[in-house]
């Protein structure tokens, strides 16, 4: 796999993992025929931090993750590791991961990834804008002895 396709694949796998399961189901209601290489499985991933934000890793705590791998009739395989315990979410993400690598890719980019990305950008921008409104603007008071 070339670096370019790897970057693209990393991008959509992350986007699908971060998407709300209900929203993904709306955008992609019908699953293509598939065989599981790994049936959807709920588990935990140990999340690591770094000491002082930059130093040696330490174990912060776990998060729930659901994973799944499948093969489509065309032979394309897809993988998913998604936050939470929603098996349907993992299956949809894996099926899309497979389909996005086929000639259907560009069409699905437009119909599914583009709206998901736009909604995520809006959500993030809204929180960032609210945070920006709470940024403190300091001003210096004129003190009596200076006059």
């Amino acid at each position: 796999m070339t670096t370019e396709t790897e970057t693209a694949r990393k991008g959509w796998m992350g986007l699908l993992a971060r998407s709300k399961p209900t929203r993904l189901a709306q955008l992609f209601p019908d699953l293509p025929a598939h065989d599981f290489l790994r049936a959807p499985e709920v588990g935990a991933v140990m999340v690591q931090g770094r000491i002082g934000g930059v130093g040696q890793p330490f174990n912060l705590g776990e998060m729930t993750v659901t994973r799944c791998a499948l093969r489509l009739a065309s032979g394309a395989t897809g993988h998913a590791y998604v936050q939470g315990r929603d098996k349907a979410h993992a299956v949809r993400a894996a099926a899309l991961d497979a389909l996005l690598q086929t000639e259907q890719g560009p069409e699905l980019q437009d119909s599914i990834l583009t709206p998901l990305r736009a909604e995520e950008t809006t959500r993030r921008a809204s929180r960032a804008a609210k945070a920006a409104a709470t940024r403190v603007e300091f001003f210096t008071l004129v003190r009596g002895e200076d006059q």
């Binding site: 499985e41 709920v42 588990g43 935990a44 991933v45 140990m46 999340v47 690591q48 931090g49 770094r50 890793p57 174990n59 912060l60 776990e62 998060m63 729930t64 993750v65 994973r67 590791y81």
Partner: peptide
């Protein structure tokens, strides 16, 4: 829960 692995440090 089965342990699926460890994340990269955040």
């Amino acid at each position: 829960l089965p342990r699926l692995g460890a994340s990269c440090p955040v």
